[in-house]
Design a protein around this nucleic acid. Structure first.
Lengths: 339, 339
DNA sequence: GTGAAAGCGCTAACAC
DNA sequence: GTGTTAGCGCTTTCAC
């Protein structure tokens, strides 16, 4: 293992200065064709790779994008990250990932860590930190799963999100069409930024159909997930509260609800129709298979990647608040046969 | 936004030299208590954060660990990464993630990318690259899901893996105890490094029970997964090949098999017993719920993190080939009632 | 079209 | 116990 090869080695081998080598590498400034050939040949021959740390020190930033996410083990998030990592890699960027487990304190620490590392940009997924913090962060930030008012955002903040209002509305329409006249909804944790949009879309959808959803029909657990949803559904049944449809705002919550309904021998969709949200793999394996709102994780990933790249490069962006369409995937937990 | 604050600012504010400031920060070398207090106070007051790029340039390496994985969207991998990211974060390290989608060429590119970034270490998950490449890479590398002969490894290569031989054996014993006398196995893709160990454990387990598994009973698809497994099981049934048990070496393959068996009205476990592998969430939702081999993703993550940290710090390591125990999780796809 | 040289922010000799 | 200084590898002004 010889010393690592630097611009200097290339320069010496070619009998030019390091400045010229640098110009060739970055295709920046003038140099003769002949020099270019010699330099490129030497780079090839010696297997030279520019040292990114030195570059970063000079440029005052790295070619890395920080990604902060509640948990990479969440299928929806990992799908988004898979997609955006691929796009960013193609442009020479790498991603540094942090899991916060939903803790605001952890999020704060991650931002500190990222600041010290001089990342070029930050992608923050389903964050419930105060967005104003981002406004006076020098590094461009894109929020996923969080709708931001375009007017409130500085030029270094943007958002990409599913159209959660639309998904709430779709769920309302599907439950109604399935004969549900007293639907309820189970939201993610109250501080999840998507909760409000989905719920208001749901309320609005029902209202348009002539039904005013009572506030008591909106259930907002402190912790999102399968277990919580089981417990809530169990309580809901034993309380005798009249309901004949559930919009569970995550698929895991929907699956939890389905399991409890099944254990009570309540027929789905005949007695109670159920709509989930996200369309992760488990949805296909519900009993019955779950009707759900599909989020386009791949598209969210690519749009986010393109957005952050533009911002990092100081290129103009089409919009600083991108809404990705959702769609209903009808399976067997809605639309009773006799309707 | 003022200029970013550097050691120099701290030094000036305290009336000391940058060297002293550096000594205090790194707790390296001598300095008076009084100086220390002044410096720390100034750091606090100005909100100084050491520039990691400059440090990295100096130290010739960053505090980042590169992680190369086939796909972060695979639940088992993402659970491992969740775990190891937490551990590494506590020690001040960050992780840079690459997805290869199982492509060796992509893996090669990722290594090149990582080399240019001077990561302190590399964690390579389920890689099928030539390990000898790692031997003359200067940066420590830990392989996950790949058993390496301790003798073949240099001091900068190590491995952490489930005890895949044991899991094959467990599967054999469980199927046998469920009354299966002609079991088959469906492996992950042939180049997956775990395939060989699981299969030989399975063969050995059956042999110990007095059954010699014919080579025709080992099915090795080119592509791992739910769909492939469905197709293979379908073919297996229509071919009339006699079998009464399946060891599917991933849970998704097991779920695919279960679906096909169900569509043919073949009773599980009465007619055919099924054992999966990994114990990811979907296993609980199989029809019937899937008996499977549990892999301890969290432990694999923490052991990997500790290993790579020791290697990075040039500390001695207990072992360069760690085997993490597995366990059978019995659900309803094995052990017919009448036995 | 090319070279010399400064400097990004930090650490570690080395001197005192 | 503290200061001076070289230099990590790169890019970029400024000369010529």
């Amino acid at each position: 293992m010889g010393r690592t090869v630097t611009v200097r080695d290339i320069a010496e081998k070619c009998g030019v200065s390091v400045a010229t080598v640098s110009r060739v590498i970055n295709n920046n400034g003038r140099f003769s064709q002949e020099t270019e050939h010699r330099v490129r040949a030497a780079i090839e021959e010696l297997g030279y790779q520019p040292n990114q740390m030195a570059r970063a020190l000079r440029a005052r930033r790295t070619d890395a994008i920080g990604v902060i996410v509640p948990s990479i083990a969440n299928e929806f998030y990992s799908s988004v990250i898979l997609s955006l990592q691929g796009e960013l890699f193609d442009e020479g960027f790498s991603i540094i990932i942090y899991n916060t487990n939903g803790s605001v304190e952890m999020e704060r620490q991650c931002h500190a860590h990222l600041a010290a590392q001089n990342v070029a940009g930050i992608i923050s997924v389903n964050s419930h930190e105060d967005v104003r913090l981002a406004l006076d962060r020098p590094v461009p930030t894109v929020y996923i799963d969080r709708f931001l008012d375009p007017d409130e955002m500085g030029s270094n903040v943007a958002s990409v999100s599913s159209d959660n209002f639309a998904s709430g509305k779709l769920a309302a329409e599907e439950l109604w069409a399935s004969g549900s006249r007293h639907p309820v909804t189970i939201t993610p944790r109250p501080d999840a930024p998507v909760t409000e949009m989905r719920t208001s879309g749901f309320v609005r959808g029902l209202k348009d159909l002539g039904y005013e959803l009572p506030a008591e029909s909106i259930f907002t657990p402190q912790v999102t997930g399968y277990e919580t949803s089981r417990i809530m559904t169990e309580r809901l049944i034993s309380s005798g509260y009249p309901f004949d449809g559930i919009f569970a705002q995550t698929d895991w919550e929907a699956i939890g609800a389905l399991e409890v309904l099944r254990s009570h021998h309540i027929r789905v969709p005949e007695e109670i129709a159920v709509v989930g949200h996200d369309d992760i793999m488990i949805a296909q394996f519900g009993r019955p298979p779950l009707t759900t709102i599909h989020q386009d994780a791949a598209q969210i990933g690519t749009r986010t990647a393109h957005l952050i790249l533009s911002m990092v490069r100081d290129e103009p962006i089409e919009s600083n608040s991108i809404l990705v369409p959702v769609g209903l995937v009808r399976r067997e937990s809605t639309r009773r046969a006799d309707l």
